[in-house]
Design a protein around this nucleic acid. Structure first.
Length: 830
DNA sequence: AGCACGCCGACT
DNA sequence: GTCGGCGTGCTC
């Protein structure tokens, strides 16, 4: 009886625009009653076209007068859970993006629709007398004669084709192009072979003609290896062909069958089963702390602050076992760069087929396979990079974010989310435990741990008791005074030589090839910084000025150092190629592997280069910080940081934090094995706290110092940040809009909101468009945030200029109130 | 975002 | 009259 009640679906349509960013109501036709659920992907008529949408709610009445009906449901089961649907709405609100954009970011690429407009001949237009037709008409007919239809673009290419002519001749249809989920994408057809009757195999061998060598071999194989085998495996074991096996099948000795199975990227690899390792006292303590909230099923965040080599992974593994025992699920986030086969192996080894792996090297189809294993409850553990945080589990018990300070957890495209925030929301919704693991946590996380918002657990001992490598800081100003103008200090050059002579390997770091260049005095090491923001000034070659990218302060490039009056003042920005050239000039006989954006852009190049280095094919590995993570080379005994300053002086309030983190990571790299390691840090600022405290392993001191500075200049965690980027082809217009926008925000924004800028960003002109950015620092208070977000929404419609593009971004550190309330209503729908 | 509709100036 | 350009407003 209840079925007779009208059911109406609220649908978010796949049209990312401001005025379509709201639910539209559709009738659920009787035949789709059972299929349309919260989270379903549906096809709906929208205006004059058909689009994909997501059902985000179901109700029995609508305020809208005439409703259209849902055309179809796209999937067997809804791709999104009610929880993820809610999360999508929260993301849209918090990250200032369209709801559909947030929802799309949670599903694999194969589920994203692309549309193509197709045209075919109007049914009423009968075959005409060809010769009487105009030129464009003739072309159109010949185009459509071959195939029944063609794309809109093709038709428009016909010269002289007019709109009204087309209308007469053509019928339009928008079609949805689904990525082909055929044999290759979802499932793979695999032939399995087995003996028809194992006991008869011997007699079979006798019956066969002695000349049928291959056939006998195959039967012998089944005698030796009872059971089923994949045909492809059989063919590699015994050098034979499909047709020979076929002959045996036809004679009735063997059976075979084609089966569909998931294509498993790690399928042909066998993972040695690993057993839980005994935990040290310290590890045991950490393990207990993680397991406690898991048992209590309460949302809880733990910062696992452990030095490199303190055995965090083993703790993760054992905590996951605990979660599985509760029949709950776990997500493990790892930075893309350390999602190496070794890492995967560790998890697959312990948990086997209960693990789905999601990383960027998977094809769309493979990714879809892994995702479906999660959605259908075939696996309980998802390990992957940033986007794995959306793994559609329904009963999460634990989320682990390893190396939680990594910048790769922040998505740079819309929606610009941070996986750490998403993790907090999801943990809250599921009553799950969130573990943030790092040797060098983000300053914000450390702050929260020390103020009691997170539980703080430290691991101070290395598992095998290996000592930390000795760190030496070389003052490059001193080198210059000694007349050494090369980029290698005497100490580094000598150490490198000795290292290579001993037959050991070295790793050299050059920090990120910054697009922003800064100005520094080579004599005293002072850099030019903004008097208002304490941020490094950026050098602009075009007009010989230095500028602050936060507040807009500018001055002419000074000829002499304002601090020591030296003339050795110049801008910096050394690339890896230059270091390589210099290295080969000083050491002509050595082999260097260079890893940077240029050498690793090709697919698989990254892994290949690392494997080469591991195999001892080169003496030196030279690269940007992409080589700093999760690498463990037995023969590396020397690690050199060419210029610690390049990162330190980036125009970013997190520059010191990044520098400290990198240097600490580097320390963990050298000498993890038998030989003792040595780290050499070259710098023009040996006294800078981030460098000095990293070199002396004074973690605690660093965070205190950094927090002091953040507090003084009001940066996170002592404020919330919004950035606004606007762009326009016309520079004058852009500047005018920027000024007006800034004025508007300054007038309307609540007190304690400070707008910095507008100011040209590091890349001031991109793709023929000028750009300006603004930064808003504001109090982290829900009321203030709501008001500010309201104002930010207003500015989107402030200017009537299609050329003006506005994009907004937010750094979130607190989860919004109300999410758990929303969730309660949604869960009653399950 | 698309797409229609409607207004306007320009053209065989 | 008809064609195409462009601004406006709507999509359950």
């Amino acid at each position: 009886m209840a079925n007779e009640m009208v059911r109406i679906a609220e649908v978010i349509v796949d049209v990312p625009a401001n005025n379509t960013d709201r639910p539209f109501d559709y009738r659920i036709p009787p035949e789709l009653q059972d299929d349309v659920q919260v989270g379903s992907r549906v096809l709906v008529p929208f205006g004059h076209r058909k689009v994909i949408g997501y059902c985000i709610g179901i109700k029995t009445a609508s305020s809208s007068m005439r409703l259209k009906s849902i055309i179809d449901v796209m999937d067997m089961a809804p791709p999104l859970t009610p929880e993820l649907v809610q999360l999508g709405q929260v993301m849209a609100e918090e990250y200032l993006c369209h709801t559909i954009t947030a929802l799309q970011s949670m599903v694999p690429a194969v589920l994203k629709g692309t549309y193509q407009k197709m045209v075919k001949l109007h049914p009423e237009s009968r075959e005409p007398l060809f010769s009487l037709l105009s030129d464009p008409e003739q072309q159109l007919y010949s185009l459509l004669e071959k195939r029944g239809e063609c794309t809109w673009e093709e038709v428009n290419k016909i010269p002289g084709m007019s709109r009204s002519l087309l209308k007469k001749l053509i019928e339009e249809e928008r079609i949805l192009v689904e990525e082909r989920i055929g044999d290759r994408v979802t499932k793979q057809k695999v032939t399995w072979v087995w003996a028809a009757d194992a006991d008869q195999l011997r007699s079979g061998l006798q019956t066969l003609s002695p000349r049928a060598v291959r056939q006998r071999e195959i039967l012998q194989y089944f005698l030796d290896h009872p059971g089923e085998v994949e045909l492809s495996k059989l063919l590699t074991h015994i050098r034979t062909t499909r047709s020979t096996v076929k002959r045996l099948v036809e004679q009735g000795w063997l059976c075979w069958e084609e089966r569909e199975q998931y294509r498993d990227p790690y399928g042909d690899r066998t993972f040695g089963k690993t057993e839980p390792l005994p935990l040290t006292k310290e590890q045991q303590r950490a393990f207990q702390a993680i397991v406690r909230p898991i048992h209590e099923k309460r949302a809880h965040t733990i910062l696992l602050h452990g030095v490199t080599g303190s055995g965090k992974t083993e703790i993760y593994l054992q905590a996951i076992e605990e979660v599985l025992r509760q029949k709950r699920e776990a997500i493990v986030l790892v930075p893309e760069i350390s999602l190496t086969p070794q890492m995967v192996q560790r998890f697959k080894g312990r948990f086997g087929k209960q693990v789905a792996v999601l990383h960027s090297r998977l094809s769309n189809g493979e990714r879809y396979d892994e995702w479906r294993k999660i959605r259908q409850g075939e696996v309980q553990i998802a390990i992957g990079a940033r986007s794995a945080i959306f793994a559609p589990f329904q009963n999460l018990g634990l989320i682990i974010i390893d190396e939680e300070h990594e910048t790769s957890y922040k998505q740079e495209e819309n929606p610009k989310y941070h996986a750490r925030d998403i993790a907090k929301w999801r943990a809250q919704a599921h009553g799950a435990t969130l573990v943030l693991g790092s040797a060098t946590p983000a300053v914000e996380s450390y702050f929260k741990a020390r103020t009691g918002e997170y539980e703080w657990i430290q691991l101070t001992e290395r598992v095998h008791g290996r000592p930390f490598p000795e760190v030496q800081v070389v003052d490059m100003r001193e080198e210059l005074r000694k007349g050494n103008r090369s980029m290698f200090s005497q100490l580094l050059a000598r150490s490198l030589k000795e290292c290579i002579e001993r037959g050991e390997q070295a790793v050299l770091f050059l920090n990120r090839r910054g697009f922003a260049t800064f100005v520094m005095c080579r004599s005293c090491g002072e850099t030019l910084i903004c008097p208002h923001c304490d941020i490094t000034l950026t050098y602009h070659q075009t007009n010989q000025t230095v500028r602050c990218h936060y507040c807009g302060y500018a001055e002419r490039l000074p000829q002499t150092c304002p601090n020591c009056q030296s003339k050795h003042i110049r801008h910096f920005g050394t690339g890896t190629q230059r270091v390589e050239a210099e290295l080969l000039r000083q050491f002509p006989d050595i082999k260097v592997i260079r890893m940077d954006v240029d050498t690793t852009s090709r697919k698989g190049a990254h892994e290949r280069l690392l494997a080469q280095f591991r195999d001892g094919k080169a003496h030196v590995l030279l690269g940007t910080q992409m080589i700093a993570k999760g690498l463990d080379f037995p023969k590396v005994t020397l690690v050199g940081v060419i210029a610690a300053d390049t990162m330190l002086h980036l125009p970013d309030f997190r520059a010191a934090e990044r520098t400290f983190q990198l240097l600490m990571q580097v320390g963990g790299r050298a000498g993890r094995h038998e030989q003792p390691g040595k780290v050499i840090i070259q710098t023009y600022s040996p006294d800078h706290y981030s460098i000095h405290l990293a070199a002396t392993y004074q973690t605690e001191m660093f965070y205190r110092q950094e927090l002091l500075i953040r507090k003084r200049h009001v940066y996170p965690p002592f404020c919330s940040l919004f950035t606004i980027m606007i762009s326009h082809v016309d520079r004058i217009h852009l500047m005018k809009y920027g000024q007006q926008m800034a004025q508007f925000i300054r007038n309307k924004a609540p007190a304690d909101c400070h707008l910095l800028g507008p100011v040209p960003p590091p890349i001031a002109k991109l793709k023929d468009r000028y750009r300006l950015q603004m930064l808003i620092k504001c109090q982290t208070d829900p009321k203030v945030l709501v008001r500010l977000k309201h104002i930010l929404h207003q500015i989107e419609n402030m200017f009537d200029d299609r050329e003006l593009v506005i994009s907004m971004d937010r750094e979130i550190m607190n989860f919004p109130v109300g999410y758990s309330d929303l969730l309660e209503t949604s869960q009653s729908l399950i």
